[in-house]
Design a binder for these strands. Structure first.
Lengths: 203, 203
DNA sequence: CTCATTTTGTACCATTTCGCAAACAATCCT
DNA sequence: AGGATTGTTTGCGAAATGGTACAAAATGAG
């Protein structure tokens, strides 16, 4: 919806808001209240925009949510890709991923992961959301699996390690940490989970 | 709200519905659409009751949801307690738990676990829901941990097995299976996840 | 039979919600 | 300067939503 981002000069009245910033603020409301419980008034208040501007920028309510969801899915995959791109022992990498995840999930009052905390509910009745969630998680799994596979090939892990099982355990642990955060558990609980999951990985 | 369940004879006009059955039907609507997206009209249509009867039976909309949520939390803990109460090798027990979970999560079009799929979103802004979810999952973890601890003591598992870590892995795997189901993954995907988690447990 | 009691059915109300139309404002182009 | 273009503001309106009042109906008690 929002276009001509990079173009030097646009004609007509300039926008009074930054689309990326507005989408982040809208996303934060969805993040706490969920999609269905968030009203356009909530979004207008959070972004400082009024409804017609919201419509012009992102389309209807579902359009705003889908834009936020896609951005969040992209950020998630990018974060995993970044964490796995650095070399070094897989154990260090996994520990880093867990630490970063815990920080992220506890920020904002323990809201957890956006996908887990909001999109999953909507996935029950919305085919598009369901697909976005499925593909986002699948991408993360694939990235992690490739990384573990490479680590085995590089001799950084035991030869009989199971890259696919380990990738899925990292993924599941992240999701579990997200749930625990949103259920109100404090940091030490999350840290112990991460530590015990790491123990079971025997890296 | 609903009372005098066991009393032989009630005065006045008899109820035209079965409270337990009505609550199950209401729960099924919440299960697919989530709490916020479910309207009282939806609930009235699903239960066959009209709004005043719903109010008399369960209170307001949140009351209906909380009743369904509490019942579901109870059922979950009961299912775990039942599965762990039977003796035998822990590996068999875990496999059974996963199999049962997969069946349950894929039924109804892949709606996953009620708590994971609906309550977690609401937990973001509802303190009571957050507490119910937290306690329900905590109970399951505790039951599983005790069972693994007993298995170690009984020599059914390696002495250096980690009951707490294993319990948390079973729990996290169940939650992950629930998410995968709701994200639209087919049965084989879930079955592979369960199998690989079991592999990592080295039971 | 009559009355008290409980539930049901209909209708209603106040509020919220989404979405849009039309007028106003700011900028660019010629 | 004047028109074209784009974004903002205000306000409206139709529909849906949560919740309730009240009369009718169905049962047990006396």
């Amino acid at each position: 919806m929002v276009q001509n981002e990079t173009e030097a000069k646009r004609r007509g009245r300039p926008r009074a808001y930054d689309p990326d910033d507005a989408l982040r603020r809208a996303r934060d409301v969805f993040w706490v209240k969920g999609y269905a419980a968030t009203s356009l008034d909530d979004l207008a208040a959070a972004t400082g925009m009024n409804r017609p501007s919201l419509y012009a920028a992102f389309g209807d309510k579902q359009g705003i949510y889908l834009a936020a969801l896609r951005a969040q899915a992209e950020d998630l995959a990018a974060a995993i890709a970044l964490a796995t791109s650095q070399g070094g022992p897989p154990a260090i990498m996994v520990r880093l991923i867990f630490d970063r995840s815990i920080d992220a999930y506890l920020s904002g009052g323990g809201r957890g992961c956006f996908l887990v905390g909001t999109a999953l509910t909507e996935a029950g009745a919305n085919e598009e959301v369901r697909m976005i969630v499925r593909e986002a998680f699948q991408r993360c799994d694939d990235i992690l699996e490739r990384r573990f596979h490479a680590a085995v090939a590089a001799g950084e892990m035991a030869a009989d390690a199971h890259p696919r099982a380990l990738a899925q355990l990292v993924s599941a642990t992240m999701h579990e940490l997200s749930m625990l955060a949103r259920a109100g558990h404090p940091r030490p609980v999350l840290e112990e989970r991460a530590a015990l999951a790491l123990t079971l990985m025997r890296l």
